[in-house]
């Protein structure tokens, strides 16, 4: 970070990293999904702090607004709409231990390979004083501020005007496509959440499609409506209502 003592920077990095990883583990492993959402807030705030350490103050603010506030509230709405359930297995059908071990093996393998790929060249390059700038010393910033426009923009206004110039010149097409994507996502989300299907009413009649019977009926009703035979679906609904 420009004009900050290296000691302070190191201290901030280690604290933020510890908080971030601890709350990330909390998101994945805490029993209650509501606590997971609160851990998500903490993790996103820590990530915003890391952005601030990496000379990206605008991104740090955007991170707090979009992730820290917006996304956490959306997730909490999702939790309230779907219920805080502990998901106990029915008796005699416990989940196999492979459901935890297999993902763990995949993650350990991928994380190990990625860490090796990062650390091996890191060791050799540091030893030979190679191409990569591993640490940003005061000398680095003195030369960077004179030669690199990005570094100058960071010193002036945190890079804000520079980012705006890039967004509206070099990345204009991507910017416009992103706005189209947001519009599509909004329309799609409204459409998905508002539309009701005839088989849903049937699901409500049987009191939850959790039973194999209800699930197959819902499936057949879905297949019927897809094939265009709405009549068959209606009959299934009526028969289910009659059975009740």
């Amino acid at each position: 970070m420009i004009e900050t003592s290296p000691l302070l920077q190191q201290l901030a990095f280690w604290i933020l990293a510890a908080v971030m990883l601890a709350s990330a583990i909390g998101i994945v492993f805490h029993r209650s999904i509501v606590y997971s959402a609160l851990f998500m807030l903490v993790a996103f705030m820590a990530i915003a702090g890391v952005f601030a350490l990496l000379n990206a103050p605008f991104l740090a603010a955007a991170q707090i607004m979009v992730y820290g506030v917006g996304l956490t509230i959306v997730m909490i709405f999702g939790i309230m709409l779907t219920g805080d359930q502990p998901f106990r297995d029915p008796a005699g059908k416990e989940r196999s231990v492979w459901y935890a071990l297999l993902p763990l093996a995949v993650v350990a393998g991928l994380g190990g390979v990625l860490s090796l790929a990062i650390l091996k060249p890191a060791a050799s390059l540091n030893a030979t004083n190679g191409l990569f700038v591993a640490q940003q010393t005061a000398d680095f910033w003195q030369t960077a501020l004179q030669t690199l426009p990005g570094a100058q923009a960071l010193l002036e206004d945190g890079g804000l005007s520079h980012i705006a110039m890039l967004l509206f010149s070099k990345y204009l097409l991507a910017f416009e496509l992103a706005s189209v994507l947001l519009l599509l996502a909004m329309v799609g989300a409204i459409l998905l959440a508002l539309r009701t299907f005839p088989e849903e009413e049937q699901g409500a009649v049987t009191g939850g499609a959790l039973q194999a019977d209800g699930a197959t009926k819902a499936l057949s009703a879905g297949a019927g409506s897809v094939a265009g035979a709405g009549q068959a679906a209606k009959e299934v609904v009526q028969s289910a209502a009659g059975a009740k």
Binding site: Q85, L181, L184, A189, L191, L192, A193, E200, G203, A209
Partner: peptide
């Protein structure tokens, strides 16, 4: 950031549609 906001909203909408179908 933009893409993940779109992904979260659509993902949650799909989740709510699925929840109404399976009640879980």
């Amino acid at each position: 950031l933009t893409v993940s906001a779109a992904e979260a909203s659509v993902g949650l909408a799909v989740l709510i549609a699925l929840f109404r179908r399976t009640h879980s």
